[in-house]
Write a protein that binds this DNA or RNA. Sequence first.
RNA 1: GGGGACGUAGCUCAAUCGGUUAGAGUACCGGCCUGUCACGCCGGUGGUUGCGGGUUCGAGUCCCGUCGUCCUCGCCA
Length: 608
Amino acid sequence: MSTPAAAAQRRPGDWRRTHTCGALRLSDAGATVTLNGWVHARRDHGGIYFVDLRDRYGLTQVVLDEKLASSVRFSAEYVLSVTGTVKARDAQNRNAERATGEIEVVAARVEVLSASPNPPFEVSDDIDTALETRLRYRWLDLRRPLLQKNLLHRSRFINAIRRSFERQGFAEIETPILTKATPEGARDYLVPARVHPGKFYALPQSPQIFKQLLMVAGMDRYFQVARCFRDEDLRADRQPEFTQLDMEMSFVEEEDVFACWERVLSETFAECMGLQIKTPFKRLHYDEAQQRYGSDKPDTRFGLELKALDAWARQCEFNVFKSVTAQAGGRVMGISVPADLAAQISRKDLDTELTDHAKSFGAKGLAWWRPAADGGAGPLAKFAAGEQGLALRAALGAKDGDLCLFAAGPQAQVLRVLGELRNLLGRKFGLAKASGIAWDFLWVTGFPMFLRNEENGRWESAHHPFTAPADWNFRADDDAALGKLESRAYDLVMNGWELGSGSIRIHREEVQQRVFGLLGIGPDEQREKFGFLLEALAHGAPPHGGFAVGLDRLTALTAGLDNIREITAFPKTASAADLMCQAPSRVADAQLAEVHVARAGKGLEEGA
RNA sequence: GGGGACGUAGCUCAAUCGGUUAGAGUACCGGCCUGUCACGCCGGUGGUUGCGGGUUCGAGUCCCGUCGUCCUCGCCA
């Protein structure tokens, strides 16, 4: 920021900065400098007056004498230009907690560049202001050093990823934001088309089809920092518009995509965080992830693995368990919490925290057992005495003093309940942190191709309809086989979070038609909604596959944040509102008429 | 769409069982102070208790509705 050339061009009285507020050190003592920044704090000692001047780079203490201090009026968040002399502080006045703490700038001239009323909250990392207030005044919130640090981390992280893709020969290509509504997937954000009365664009849920068409076009290796839009209800880690690092490559199989991303992430972690992450990442089959961890995105840094207890349940005296094993698809499973942790779980924890947690994911209740020589304690105790108890201990890998938790019912629910209990216990006891593993990457492969919709009995894509099946020749009329058919989709999981997902795609028109047909999209609808894709696939489509990583989540996690709002410059609330600019907002009737839209339903009362 | 929590001064919070004039810290304003860096000391301004209705002699407090924020289940191919 301080260059001799710039200094040479300065006019007398130039207000422009020669240094940032984080730049000056002891070695600058004696220099005449100009700083620009915001008034962070003032300390008036009567006769001597201190100002902390703040910008993105740091804080510098400015000293004003009585005469200068009384000649200029300013308060917090004013923007000043201060010209003065850098002075080494006396030893007893140095502030070791600030990078610029060994010096101060003795002001000769202070110019108010911009005024400010008393701000709605203090610009400080210590404050505990309601998110609602912070979002309303986001331009002020973003002045806080922590938020600036987060945005800069995000910027550096994304730039490093870009460079890595460029080194690997990928081309960054933009795809349309105004695109076509799709029949499946998330709800679309719609945009009325003024020049096509009654018709609408949709904002992209992802650039999926466009990137496939780029492969058909022969671009071979594509990536993009892509904004995606999904009109669904929000969570702490979900915004209605979010950013993906989207990529696609031709003439590849799964391992090529994995290797590409392993390189991108290891280079990015090394460059941005100084960390060497271990590659290749672990691989885990979807079925194994589900059976061992009850999740398709397991945190594998700790144990508490699920154990199958179906054989034991089948011959036990506990009717709840026994009857479940007689039902099609019924499972009885359990996890064993080691004694040192089990000792910290009270009866009250079991009856409230753990049981409530299990119930929130569909369990009817939570059966538990503390094995001991005399049969132990808990609802299972009287069915787990003697030989029965030994067999149950063996199936669970449990010892006396452990705490065993059980779930019984339809397999999907049992896996979910125990998987979530496992996560709860992991959080409660800090097991992931205790593992000493900071960054645990994992490819999950072999996802099912189709899932049966319980409500209407129809097949749906587990990933999306463009995902290749493990077997190109699958039969669309064999329900039993379809339920077992694997897809070539994969997820990247880190520390129990899904970072992204992708797949090898269907590059054959006929297979794509077969999949559409199976999903209930008939030939006419296929032509109308996806005709351009099918046509492209018919005209020389290379085998291809790709992946997309959620950058909001990844940059948040690598910055140590658990809420993506803290790394998004202008986030929306849980009701998808922007509290700063008050979007969405009403529009005039004339504006609606121009795009051929009329209010209806609730919009009649609330829109006018 | 369902469940839970919350809403009091610019900000963060308190206010006993429904009971006097709704308090504190901080910020802000004024005064004092030449070495602070969370400066200190003295004084002061600041309130539609989110909004609407109800119960009551009396409501920040109880009830109903509504708006907003957060978390969460469903949802998110």
